[in-house]
Amino acid sequence: MEISGSAFNSGISTIQAGQRRVDQAASAIASNAVTQPQQPTSTPPANQVNAAPNAAEQTRPDLAESLVALRVGQNEAQAGAKVVKTADEVLGTLIDTTA
């Protein structure tokens, strides 16, 4: 019985961790969209070198990292749900066997 309880607890904590990761990533994406609106960029004159990237280019890695974190959180929550489902099935089988 402890094994099943442990599996349930592990699955639930994994779901919660995934949900926290999704929440954080969604918040980062939303704040990035609010603080860094996309602005049209102008081309520098031919004799001028553009040393500093524009604001849109600077936010792309942050956005990409947030999107990856969002997907990781989704996968983490789905994995936790599968653990809970499997633990439920195992417990159901054990109850059917012992009854």
Rank of each mutant, 00 (worst) to 15 (best):
E65H: 12
G5S: 12
A99L: 12
A87I: 03
V84M: 03
I3F: 08
F8T: 05
A26K: 07
L91W: 04
I95T: 13
T35W: 03
A64G: 05
T86W: 02
I29G: 01
A26M: 09
V34D: 11
Q16T: 08
V72L: 09
K82W: 01
Q38L: 13
P44M: 09
T14I: 07
V84I: 09
A52G: 05
V34E: 12
N47F: 12
T59C: 08
I12F: 05
G5I: 04
E89A: 15
N32P: 00
I15F: 01
S42N: 11
A52Y: 10
E89L: 15
I15N: 02
T41I: 06
A56V: 00
Q38M: 14
A77L: 05
V22D: 02
A30T: 07
S42Q: 15
A46K: 11
F8I: 12
D62S: 07
A30P: 01
A46H: 09
A51G: 07
T98R: 14
T59Y: 04
A81R: 01
A56D: 04
S42G: 14
S6G: 09
D62N: 10
A7H: 01
S42C: 11
I12T: 05
S10G: 13
T41M: 08
S31H: 08
S4M: 05
V34K: 13
R21T: 10
S27R: 08
Q19N: 14
N75I: 02
I15G: 00
T93L: 11
S4P: 00
V72D: 02
